[in-house]
């Protein structure tokens, strides 16, 4: 595939709880290419947001190991001032909750202008205002001149999310990280926002990391998908393969727990996602949630196996996985879908 824009290598992001550091992102390696949407799927506690925050350098109290190469340059060890030069300019982020992500005491115009002031100080006042109005237009906000002087609380959730997107794309970033960008929004607004992200991506040729727990959103948006569980990537594939030929037990379980056509009973994953300090640190981390699968099918130290070009699965247990509600014989090595 195309040029590598972002290369995450063996990233470990740990947080301190009590006297110990616990890794929320545990040895993750991923790449994002130019003009590509990488979907990252996982439930709460999977480490997907911690991963995004690590790339943006937004963790204030985490320990970060490994490397994150942005256009070939390691940004983990970058001094703050250089990092600030990148953030909001070459890479930017769309946040989950539009109701809290804007400063309640600042006008919309000023909040978008700020990112221009920081990265294009040579712009004149008028140029800047024109550019902001143009951005508001681009993200589909009606009456931009009026909204320019409004405060966040005067706008609906969908409009605020558009403002946040306007901030993120103000300097035409090469990398756009969208962290659950539509979770807080209604479906019709979601469709509009996703459409907008898609258009902007193809216009600017940016790489996009789309983080979400909503499999439907990933299926619609992503070119490639990484599934995360307990801080690790358990499966990566292009979107068609991942949805039509999923391999990892977690991916398959997740897909089966979403209501779909003709499905009578939803699949329930046993147990719960353990809290950060209780995450299993050895062996297959999903093993305790599929106890009916014999323990000798798991690897001692599971690694990602490339089972077809670009399709990686962690641990060997996928070969022996079946759903307990299905007859074992029929399903052992076969596909469940497609």
């Amino acid at each position: 595939m195309g040029d590598k824009l972002l290369e995450i290598k063996n990233l470990i992001t740990s947080f301190r709880i009590g006297d110990h550091y616990y890794a929320a992102v545990d040895n993750v390696s991923l790449t994002v290419n130019k003009n590509e949407v990488l979907g990252i799927v996982g439930e709460s506690g999977s480490g997907k947001s911690a991963l995004a925050f690590s790339v943006m350098g937004l963790h204030t109290k985490a320990k970060i190991e490994g490397s994150i190469l942005f256009n070939g340059k390691d940004i983990v060890s970058l001094p703050k001032s250089e990092l600030n030069g990148l953030r909001g300019d070459d890479m930017s982020m769309i946040f989950q909750d539009p109701l809290t992500a804007l400063n309640p005491l600042m006008e919309i115009g000023a909040q978008i202008s700020e990112t221009l002031i920081l990265h294009r100080p040579q712009m004149s006042l008028k140029e800047r205002k024109d550019h902001v109005i143009e951005l508001l237009n681009m993200v589909g906000i009606p009456r931009p001149e009026y909204v320019y002087e409004q405060f966040p609380h005067e706008l609906s959730g969908g409009m605020r999310q558009r403002v946040i997107i306007a901030i993120a794309i103000a300097n035409r970033p090469e990398l756009l990280i969208a962290d659950e960008p539509t979770t807080a929004l209604d479906v019709t607004i979601q469709a509009q926002i996703l459409d907008l992200v898609r258009k902007l991506k193809s216009e600017m040729g940016s790489g996009v990391i789309l983080i979400t727990h909503d499999l439907g959103v990933v299926a619609e948006m992503a070119d490639r998908v990484a599934v995360m569980y307990a801080g690790q990537v358990v499966e990566i594939a292009d979107v068609q393969t991942l949805f039509n030929n999923p391999k990892h037990p977690y991916t398959r379980s997740l897909l089966n727990s979403v209501p779909a056509e003709g499905q009578d009973k939803l699949h329930v994953i046993q147990g719960i996602v353990p809290a950060l300090q209780n995450l299993p640190r050895e062996g297959c981390r999903f093993a305790e949630r599929i106890p009916w699968i014999e323990s000798n099918t798991h690897e001692k130290d599971p690694v990602l196996h490339e089972i077809s070009p670009g399709h990686f699965v962690r641990c060997t247990c996928y070969k022996h996985f079946y759903f307990p509600e299905e007859p074992k014989e029929a399903k052992v090595y076969g596909n469940t879908r497609g």
Binding site: G216, A219, E220, N244, L255
Partner: peptide
């Protein structure tokens, strides 16, 4: 109709069709 068309489809092969329908 608009509401129903906005539901994301879990099958990525329907993507283009869905966009167009929407």
């Amino acid at each position: 109709k608009r509401l129903v068309s906005a539901i994301p489809d879990i099958d990525p092969s329907n993507r283009e069709k869905l966009f167009q329908f929407r």
